[in-house]
Design a protein around this nucleic acid. Sequence first.
DNA 1: GGCGTTTGCTTTGACGTCAAACGATCTCGC
DNA 2: GCGAGATCGTTTGACGTCAAAGCAAACGCC
Lengths: 166, 166
Amino acid sequence: MALEFDPVEEAARNWRRHRWPAVPAMAAATSITRAHQVLLRRIDEALAPFGLTFSRFEALALLHFSRRGALPLGKVGERLQVHPASVTNTVDRLERDGLVRRQPHPDDRRATLAAITDEGRDLVERAAKALGAIDFGLAGDADVAPVDHRAIVAALAPVRRNAGDF
Amino acid sequence: MALEFDPVEEAARNWRRHRWPAVPAMAAATSITRAHQVLLRRIDEALAPFGLTFSRFEALALLHFSRRGALPLGKVGERLQVHPASVTNTVDRLERDGLVRRQPHPDDRRATLAAITDEGRDLVERAAKALGAIDFGLAGDADVAPVDHRAIVAALAPVRRNAGDF
DNA sequence: GGCGTTTGCTTTGACGTCAAACGATCTCGC
DNA sequence: GCGAGATCGTTTGACGTCAAAGCAAACGCC
């Protein structure tokens, strides 16, 4: 299962050997890609018993946190930073499972509200606990490789800022 | 386009308000997810003119770096850390575009080699330059938010290490 | 008021990921 | 040498993402 060498270091060596550009940036990009892959797998694994995926969980949590327990689909996409088609897809599945209900927007007949159901609220609370229990896939063995959550957020903040987030 | 607030901070506030667990880990996980999304979009955009995606580029580069310009499909999956079915898919598309050719493994009739073509080598060299030109989607405006590539690699290393990488 | 433009959501299609199931082939142990 | 079990790659199916196109409704300007 475990490789004998660090794939990121290995890639950096190869890039240098071929005189390809932007080696440090490549290493950072590769690290992010791999970390994301690892994380997503662990998170989805923890959510599977609840019939949720990470993206569905995120949407459900967003609605749970909202004042009225309902938001226009466009708003959901904006907050989660995903494409409108993805929102349609996500809400379809949440609705299929009875965790969310589509409602007509009271003032704008173009718009649709996604409203969390009682069942949805109950499930998302339990799912959040499960995610906490695995530390969001970021539980680090303190002796082997302690994970510094703040350092991760700090290191990635410029990337997000450059992308127009906050 | 730009939001007025940091979605990660916003999420952290909500999690605290509801007394949900593992807030720092959640913030780190959300940061990684978002950074990955931003990165992938920029990289794929830069590769589009070459008819490549990031995953296809990674496979092509791996073959280009290999001693014989050819590797068993299983080896490719192992190095890139992706599922065998994904390798099949990726190699299918590379082969369709004439960048790679499948060859029977000389010693093991179960196995198949993916061999990079001259066309593939030429394309991957040009694509690598293009990725360098955008600094792998990690070009930071030095005045606004300089991106520290080393800090990113360092912060994420424990995550990868805990996952069994190196 | 009416018409052109914008906005909100859905649909369709392309691509990526993974898990599970399936042949074909290799390997190991008796 | 032969059969059980492991390994290699593909297929199928579920899910996620995005872009582009299309329809309905709202907005805005004259």
